Computed example of a mutant assay.
Amino acid sequence: MITVIVADDHPVVRAGIVGEIQKDAELQLLGEAASSTELFPMLEKHQCNVIVTDYAMPGGKFGDGLPMLQMLQRRYPQVQLVVMTMLDNPALIHTIQKAGIRAVINKADRLAHVNPAIHAVHRNGSYIPASVKALLATMGSTTREHLLSKRETEVLRMCATGLPVVEIARICNRSSKTISTQKVVAMRKLGLVSDYDLYQYAVSTGLISPAN
């Protein structure tokens, strides 16, 4: 049996993923989490093989996005990850892959991708649906996002969601001064002047969803 935990802050989406997993006799659902606050204690209690997790789950004690994924990899290196996201920013998806995530599913795709992705990563393979491959293929070497480092991209994403610099510094384990500097430098690279400009840019590029 492959043991699985599902993490997503949208109850309807989470229910759909759970329902799909329960169709497969080789998969055992250990639990559901609505945030990183709920997810990490579950991992202390259960021997989990695969986590199917949303990329953006703001408000959790252990953050979300890339810092959360990297923390999961450090603390639980034996656990494989399947990341689901509504973001359609090819540079960001490429960054997720560079962090060692081998399965990325777009939430706009059919849920039928979930179980094959779980089986693939459990076998140390990868799973990238055709829609995600097509999105990655649109990423040219001259896109503005390539001007940013991984850390700058993640700092901008969290700033755009409204998180204060002090909280971002805690999540990323960096100083507030470092976070502020990275934000200023990244905004300058992109030609952004105000926090409103940053929010508009983040939404338009898929860095965050309008719901944030």
Rank of each mutant, 00 (worst) to 15 (best):
R144Y: 00
T142R: 12
H119R: 15
H119V: 09
T178N: 09
G191N: 08
V132A: 07
R157W: 00
R157S: 10
G140E: 09
T138I: 04
G162R: 12
Q182R: 14
C159A: 15
L163G: 02
A137E: 14
L163S: 06
L135G: 03
C159S: 13
L136P: 03
S180R: 13
K133A: 15
R188S: 15
M158P: 01
V184K: 14
V166K: 11
T138P: 00
T143Q: 11
E154S: 11
P129E: 04
M187T: 07
S131C: 08
T143P: 02
K189H: 11
T153I: 10
R151W: 01
A130S: 13
I179S: 03
V184A: 15
P116R: 13
R144N: 11
R144V: 14
S149K: 10
L163D: 01
T142Q: 13
P129N: 12
L148D: 00
M158A: 09
N124H: 15
T153A: 08
T153P: 00
V155C: 05
K183Q: 15
G162W: 05
L136I: 12
L163A: 11
T178A: 14
A120D: 06
A117G: 06
N173T: 11
L148E: 04
V155A: 08
E154K: 05
K133Q: 15
T143M: 11
R170Q: 11
E167C: 01
L136M: 13
I171D: 00
V166D: 09
K189Q: 14
S176I: 03
L136C: 10
A120Y: 06
L190F: 08
A160T: 05
Q182L: 15
Y127D: 03
A137Y: 04
N124T: 09
L136K: 09
H119D: 02
T181H: 10
L163F: 10
H119E: 08
M158H: 13
S149Q: 05
I118H: 04
A130T: 15
T153M: 13
S131I: 05
S175Y: 06
I179G: 06
T142M: 07
V132N: 04
L190Y: 10
M187K: 12
S176V: 05
R170Y: 01
L156D: 02
K150L: 02
L136N: 06
V165L: 04
S175R: 06
S149L: 06
A120S: 14
R170M: 05
I179P: 01
S175M: 06
K150F: 07
T153S: 09
S141W: 04
V185P: 00
I168E: 02
H119I: 10
K183I: 09
R174M: 15
L163M: 15
E145S: 14
R170W: 01
C159F: 03
T181Q: 14
H122P: 00
I118L: 08
P116A: 12
I128C: 12
Y127L: 08
R170S: 08
I171C: 02
V132G: 05
I128V: 15
I171G: 00
I168M: 05
P129Y: 08
G191M: 05
T181V: 07
V121A: 04
T153K: 02
K189T: 09
S131Q: 08
A160R: 03
G191E: 04
T142S: 14
A186T: 07
I118N: 01
L163H: 07
M187P: 08
I118M: 07
T138E: 11
S141T: 14
A134I: 02
I118D: 02
A160K: 07
L156P: 03
S131Y: 03
V155R: 00
G125L: 11
K133M: 12
V155N: 01
L156A: 07
